[in-house]
Design a protein around this nucleic acid. Structure first.
Length: 299
DNA sequence: CGAATTTGACCCTA
DNA sequence: TAGGGTCAAATTCG
């Protein structure tokens, strides 16, 4: 599909993308600097960096929102979509060509375990969204773990469903699996999409199923765009609760490190991180799971 | 004490 | 039949 934007708007769009990219680079530099500073002088808390960083994130958020608004009245080009989507240096976003939701919902085995009569059903649908990342990402929704398995690849795979499955009937589920050791790489696979109305941070979450958000996020794959909704709001705009990973059984918790390091985990997002909120949302287990990330950065 | 997580068992699919 | 997805009781956490 080719986006036929008027020249003026196209130029505006390009300019916004350029600014967005530069702000991203600036954030990257800041985060790296913060990391280095922290390693050198642990405990020096009176830096202006947090303020600057927050500012950059707000700028990024502004760029993103502007682009969203700009594109809400037009089909967005792939170019634009890619540029305003999660900037993730070390990850890739996969939007596999899949059957539409309509088609998958016709499957008798769709996500409907124990439907009514107590029969055991398991999903056999294609994932709606997949992401590989070296960091533990957050999508803005709360998940409840319902199982984990050791796969053949010797890594644990964790199974999560939306916390609001019971109270709101939300069918969204996801799987988180480590797929690589060095460097650590995690694959998060989403099935179905959220129908619940309780994102953790509504301020920064674009309505997941709004035309603008949908068109932007799904423009990676034309096949998805018309029917498939993104399982959660934009990665760019999602809140930043961490992504639980495989369980690591050890006795020391990393929870108290979060307020210091969460930006390392989430700096890929073009939004401010709600420190207090997200810190309190971590369970001890999940906090421990960050150990890998800390180790990755040498802490 | 309610909510979340863990974990072994059960069950489905290929 | 093996591998993987889900259930649900037990356990842990806040």
């Amino acid at each position: 599909m080719e986006n036929q934007l008027p020249n003026g708007k196209k130029a505006l769009e390009e300019e916004l993308i350029r600014g967005h990219g530069m702000a991203n680079q600036l954030l990257e530099v800041l985060v790296q600097d913060k990391l280095n500073t922290h390693l050198e002088e642990e405990g020096s808390s009176k830096s202006v960096l947090p303020f600057v960083e927050d500012l950059v994130r707000k700028v990024l958020c502004s760029f993103t929102n502007t682009l969203l608004i700009l594109n809400s009245n037009n089909d967005v080009s792939n170019e634009v979509a890619a540029s305003i989507t999660l900037r993730d240096v070390s990850s890739s976003i996969n939007c596999p060509k899949l059957q539409s939701v309509d088609e998958t919902c016709k499957s008798p085995n769709i996500l409907n375990p124990k439907s009514g009569s107590g029969c055991y059903k398991r999903k056999s649908i294609a994932p709606t969204w997949k992401k590989d990342s070296s960091i533990l990402i957050e999508d803005g929704y709360t998940w409840r773990k319902y199982g984990q398995k050791m796969t053949q690849s010797k890594y644990l795979r964790s199974y999560y469903r939306c916390t609001h499955k019971n109270d709101q009937g939300c069918q969204a589920i996801k799987q988180v699996q480590r797929i690589q050791d060095n460097p650590p790489l995690y694959r998060t696979t989403y099935y179905s999409h959220h129908t619940c109305k309780s994102p953790m941070n509504p301020e920064i979450i674009v309505e997941p199923f709004s035309p603008s958000a949908s068109s932007i996020l799904l423009s990676f794959d034309n096949n998805l765009q018309s029917k498939q909704e993104n399982p959660f709001s934009s990665s760019i705009l999602a809140s930043t609760k961490h992504e639980p990973q495989e369980v690591i059984h050890n006795e020391h918790s990393a929870q108290n490190k979060l307020s210091t390091f969460e930006n390392l985990l989430f700096y890929d997002y073009d939004i401010p991180f709600d420190y207090s909120r997200n810190a309190t949302l971590l369970s001890s287990t999940e906090a421990v799971q960050f150990e890998n990330v800390y180790e990755q950065y040498g802490f």
